[in-house]
């Protein structure tokens, strides 16, 4: 009984310390930098899971440590332990019930609840005023078209692709993988993955299919503020994979419209 009591005390202590550490980590932001509501949702799910799992983690680590120290053999040879038992129905039952309960809890929240939120945000009726951006992933470049503003292939002064988004707006990315310049080649399309680390979601882009990704921007930021605000291909797509990157700018509505005008002018000049 003494061992159980001592172990429990250590466990509670370590769990409490662990929670303090975990909460300070969560306070600093486990996702480092977030710029969309989707990222905040994901971060909250992450935080919930590690908060609940900290005592579980502590239980096993403390038990390993406690066994190592308290029940270590102090003599040179091998000697059977004087205390032998094969089972402990109470312990086994609690273990199984707790592990089932924890998993069911996680499945209900955050898994199902957050997924439901995500599915809801993709419903058509909530997305009538989305900014639509056609994203084309070709080897090895991102192309961003703004069909509502007649902009094809938004680019910066160097001709590199660039993504501008207005703040506090739902954006629907329409994702396709093919090479618009080489439509004759069926092998040109491979799987890419559209990831903006600060946005907290990624979506693979499958050749021959159209996929969607929805985000709701919630702060003005840019690649220059934090390098996590960038488009980055996350699925290996050939030797050019690491170079499939594009800076992102989330700007105020006024700045966004200015940028749109500038891009439109640029395109008029090109054609």
């Amino acid at each position: 009984m003494g061992d159980i009591l001592a172990f429990t005390l250590v466990w509670i202590l370590v769990s409490a310390l662990g929670e303090i550490g975990i909460q300070s980590l969560i306070h600093h932001g486990v996702y480092y930098y977030t710029a969309t509501t989707q990222a905040l949702d994901g971060e909250a799910a992450f935080a919930f899971i590690i908060t609940v799992l900290t005592p579980v983690f502590a239980f096993i680590v403390v038990m390993i440590g406690y066994d190592m120290i308290r029940f270590r053999s102090r003599e040179p040879g091998m000697r059977p332990s004087p205390r032998q038992f094969y089972n402990n129905k109470v312990f086994v039952s609690i273990w199984i019930l707790v592990s089932i309960a924890l998993n069911l809890l996680f499945f209900v929240h955050p898994t199902a609840s957050a997924v439901e939120q995500m599915f809801n945000s993709e419903k058509e009726r909530y997305n009538r005023h989305d900014l639509i951006i056609n994203v084309t992933a070709r080897q090895w470049q991102w192309l961003f078209d703004y069909p509502q503003y007649n902009i094809t292939q938004a680019q910066d002064a160097n001709g590199n692709s660039i993504l501008y988004l207005p703040v506090d707006r739902t954006v629907r990315f329409v994702l396709r993988s093919y090479d618009p310049m080489h439509m004759y080649d069926p092998y040109a399309g491979v799987i890419h993955s559209f990831w903006i680390p600060a946005f907290g979601v990624k979506q693979d882009i499958i050749p021959g299919e159209t996929r969607y990704m929805y985000v709701h921007t919630n702060k003005v930021t840019s690649y220059n503020v934090d390098p996590m605000v960038r488009v980055q291909c996350a699925e290996v797509c050939g030797p050019g994979h690491p170079f499939m990157e594009a800076p992102v700018h989330v700007v105020s509505n006024v700045d966004f419209m200015n940028w749109i005008k500038q891009q439109q002018k640029l395109q008029a000049g090109q054609s």
């Binding site: 080649d185 170079f243 800076p247």
Partner: peptide, 24 residues
Amino acid sequence: SDTHWHEMVIGRGYDTVPSAFGAI
């Protein structure tokens, strides 16, 4: 190649474009 188009440019020196990973 069965899958890729290729070109052959002959020259020397480079024109470059800046990128997040240095000039290309």
